[in-house]
Amino acid sequence: MPEGQGAPALRRQAAGDPVRQMMRAHGELLAGAVDEWEIAAGLEARGVTDGDARRLRQPDVFGLAAELLARAPRTVARLDGGPNRTERALLPRRTGLRHALPGAAAAVFPALRSPVLGAGLAVFVAVTAWAALRKGPLAVPRGGGAPWAYALLAYALYGPQAVTALSGRGPFDPAAQVPSFAALTLGLVPAACWAHWLAVRSRAQLAPSHSLADYADAVRPRLAVALAGHAAALAALLALLTPGGPLAGPAALGLLLFAARLLSGHGEPLPALAALRGAALAETCTLAVAPLGLPLPGTAPEALACGAAFLFLLPPTFRALSRPAPHHP
């Protein structure tokens, strides 16, 4: 064959290679990847499915990622021993202390009889809670639902007593809900522990998974365990700090905030924002209709609003967090 005739054939063969076309389309992803699991998460985040991989003559997204890594330039290095093998499943001590600070401060609130000291401590709790949620496993992207979350916490602290006073069924006692509020803020610690555990286990699951469906089947039970574990921790804290008191309202709020933090912290802020906003507005409407004398128990609006918002968040939470892309380091 003459020398010049082979070049067009080779070019046609390269142009018809779908994997090579994927390499050109996702060159930036391949250039920064260190293993096939990072490539698989990046492809899935860009909308590549197992069906797309099969059309490229690969078994699934993970197989396509392995093929892309094998063809990538040798500057892309594979990590020995799998991804995140050395990552600790336990929450770092400094992060745990930062999340424990707001709850510890709120727990001493009932001992302060001075209104000035009480108001100062309330400000301190708000500031330390904001600082705790800026970084770490419960961090939320900017522009998220932080104002709505604070509105829900403010209702948890003063709302039930306000409903009782506005409906004429009793006086307004600003310290009545402090123990349950302290339990909620102390719940930041188990929430951070469960969120960190879920993130570590979900990233570790990338290595043994063979498809997106395989990965989702392994991660969904772990997400359910994290939600159930946090619910159990909240129930224990509420039972300890508010013996005989209502559990449904504060527990529903704690689960709602936990699910919203998980969802927005893993790149899905819109459903979390909608759920927090809806619950806060529903509680505001409760305060508006309380003077009409409706028979509303103080904690019932919180339980109904936050419980409904949490149920609204469950499907998108399981759908989003059972994909590998949200757990990309």
Rank of each mutant, 00 (worst) to 15 (best):
A149R: 10
T128K: 09
Y155C: 06
P110C: 02
G118T: 13
T164H: 14
F124S: 07
P115W: 13
P160M: 05
V163H: 11
A111M: 03
S114D: 14
V123E: 10
A104H: 00
P110Y: 08
A122P: 05
V140R: 12
L157G: 05
A126I: 01
A126R: 15
G118M: 12
A107H: 08
S114N: 06
A162L: 12
V163A: 13
A126G: 09
Y155W: 11
A132D: 03
A149N: 07
V116F: 04
V116I: 13
L112D: 13
P115L: 11
A139W: 04
A156E: 12
F124V: 02
T164L: 15
R113F: 01
A162G: 02
R113A: 09
A149D: 08
Y155M: 03
R134F: 01
G136Q: 07
K135H: 13
P115S: 14
L153D: 13
A132Y: 04
A126C: 05
A129I: 01
V140I: 10
P137C: 13
L152G: 07
P147Y: 11
V163I: 15
P115M: 14
A139G: 08
G143Y: 07
A154Y: 06
V140H: 05
V163K: 12
T128V: 00
P147N: 06
L157W: 04
K135Q: 14
G136V: 09
G120Y: 08
P110D: 07
P147H: 03
L166T: 11
Y150E: 11
A162N: 00
L121M: 10
W148C: 07
A105M: 03
V127N: 09
Y158K: 05
V123I: 10
P137T: 10
L112G: 11
Y150W: 03
L117F: 09
S114F: 05
W148L: 09
R134A: 12
A119G: 12
A156H: 08
G143Q: 06
P160S: 08
S114Q: 08
L157F: 02
A146P: 03
Y158M: 03
A151Y: 01
G144E: 10
A151F: 05
A107C: 09
L117Y: 01
A131F: 04
A105S: 00
R142C: 04
L112C: 13
T128M: 09
F124E: 06
G118S: 15
A132W: 04
P147F: 12
A105E: 02
L138G: 11
R142G: 14
G144R: 05
A126W: 07
A156F: 05
W148E: 15
L112K: 13
G136I: 07
A119N: 10
